[in-house]
Simulated assay, not measured.
Amino acid sequence: MITAIWLMLPAYLPNSMAAVFGGGRPIDGGKIMKDGRRILGDGKTFRGLFAGTLCGMLLGMLQMYYLTQSSGIFGVELPSFGEGSGALLVIFTLAFGSLIGDLSMSFFKRRMGFKRGAPLPVVDQLDFVMGAWLLTFIASPHWFISNFTYSIILAVLIITPLLHVSTNIVGYFIGVKNEPW
């Protein structure tokens, strides 16, 4: 479980940081598709995309620094994100991919008629995971396969919805989210 969370930290942080630091110009520029709905909506902004990605990358780099000081935590040996520019690529794809996964699902939710913030259980909790995994697998398949074993994948799929719901409730109560889901 610790390894699963460790590997996913650069992907877990960006969505909440996009909500905290977001706002401003929407990515879709306010454009409406032929179905009469916004492409993404006001909640998906360039500032949120950049800030979320940057925060995820900073956390990943802190994790890499931590590994220069210690190799584990609570008796668990922690994996590296790679070496040099390879590690930066993995950290970037985890962070940016998580936001792309969330953006993609927002697009599909709009096409299905869901309003901004409307819940879509399970999908809302795992869309960013799928985006992070897909982009990271494309960019660094060997690293991905070496680190995301079946047991790690299963742990992430179980832990993530619980963490997602918990952090969204906190975000709602501190005023950075409009809905507690």
Rank of each mutant, 00 (worst) to 15 (best):
R110T: 03
L40W: 12
W6R: 02
E179K: 04
G22L: 03
K31Y: 09
L49T: 01
I91R: 00
R25L: 13
S104I: 08
D102A: 01
F81V: 02
K177R: 15
P119R: 06
W6G: 00
F50R: 00
F74K: 09
L7R: 07
L67S: 02
G22F: 10
W133N: 03
M64A: 08
G43M: 04
L162G: 05
M130L: 15
G48D: 11
G86N: 14
T167Q: 04
I32E: 14
Y172R: 03
R116V: 10
I138P: 02
L67G: 00
G72A: 06
I32A: 10
N178G: 15
W181A: 02
S85Y: 14
V76I: 11
I169W: 14
L94R: 00
L13G: 01
A11S: 13
T45N: 10
G86V: 03
E83A: 07
A51I: 13
H142D: 14
G52E: 05
L126W: 12
I5M: 13
R111E: 12
M17P: 10
R111V: 13
D124S: 09
L54S: 06
A11Y: 00
F107R: 03
T53L: 08
L78G: 00
E77T: 15
K34D: 14
V123T: 15
N147V: 11
N178L: 12
A132D: 09
L67A: 03
L49Q: 06
L157D: 13
T45V: 15
L40N: 11
P26T: 13
F108H: 11
